[in-house]
Amino acid sequence: MSIFDYFRTAKKDTASIAKERLQIIVAHERNQRNKPDYLPKLQQELLEVIRKYVDVDQDQVEVQLDNNGNCSVLELNITLPERA
């Protein structure tokens, strides 16, 4: 690293900030995009089933689909209400 680079990186320039922000949002949006169309409906129907037994809100059920190579994992995360 030359001394010039040192001066340039001492304070992060705005282009680097833009790049970092873009990398994060683009990765996130690509991930969303690859999700199957049925996911929101699946989440809705799961919620209805769960509600038959427990009183939970929409935002307490999280459905996530992760791809690990050739295998996909559907993760269901339900936060149960505190016991009265």
């Binding site: 340039r8 320039d13 705005t14 282009a15 680097s16 833009a18 790049k19 873009l22």
Partner: peptide, 9 residues
């Protein structure tokens, strides 16, 4: 000047 995204970025 670090004010604009570069082509490689």
């Amino acid at each position: 000047k670090g004010e604009m995204l570069g082509v490689t970025d």
